[in-house]
């Protein structure tokens, strides 16, 4: 079995994997980072989204061996060492953007990428479109959209206009 090394949440990691092992299996089963979830087997739901070398990736759609040498950030790597939540996590909590929590890690990872890739502004329509690859069965997305909208302002150091709520 191939042995691979990579950086996960800032720390070096290595594991033996089968050539068919998926990145999500490596994370969950070998590295015990179970915050990244699996919600489907057709690359539809986005519960498994992580960041690989700065881009959000569905970790069920990438082989572990493809991540050799990469820098991977998972939901566990977002909060600071003292437990302070990332602004996106904070806004999800503030706006009740999660219910069962199962889609949440992937949703938060996708949302961060979405906010980072729109430095000039992010409309509701862009948010809804940007979440195409993430399914939530619980919330109806209303509060997720609100949370991401609010997080855009926090992450880009801007004040949120009052009326926008």
């Amino acid at each position: 079995m191939p042995q691979i090394s990579l950086t996960v949440n800032g720390k070096p990691a290595s594991a033996e994997v089968e050539s068919r092992t998926l990145l999500v299996e490596l994370l969950r089963e070998k590295l015990h980072l179970t915050g990244t979830h699996v919600g489907c087997d057709t690359s539809q739901c986005g519960a498994c989204v992580v960041e690989v070398d700065g881009k959000s990736v569905k970790s069920c759609t990438m082989l572990a061996v493809q991540a050799a040498g990469a820098h991977v950030t998972t939901i566990e790597g977002l909060a600071s060492a003292d437990g302070k939540l990332h602004p996106m996590q904070e806004m999800f909590r503030e706006h009740h953007a999660l219910q069962c929590g199962y889609c949440t890690p992937g949703m938060v990872m996708s949302a961060i990428d979405l906010v980072n890739s729109h430095p000039d502004g992010l409309s509701e329509e862009q948010i809804r479109h940007g979440l195409e690859g993430n399914i939530c069965r619980c919330t109806g997305y209303h509060n997720i959209v609100k949370a991401i909208h609010a997080a855009w302002f926090v992450m880009h150091g801007k004040e949120m206009p009052i009326a926008a709520e």
Partner: peptide, 20 residues
């Protein structure tokens, strides 16, 4: 009231069956 359960779900520390 903001939810008590959110911190663990938001930081990847939920305990779903397949996590065990």
């Amino acid at each position: 009231v903001k939810r008590v359960e959110d911190h663990r779900f938001l930081s990847g520390k939920g305990h779903y069956t397949d996590d065990m």
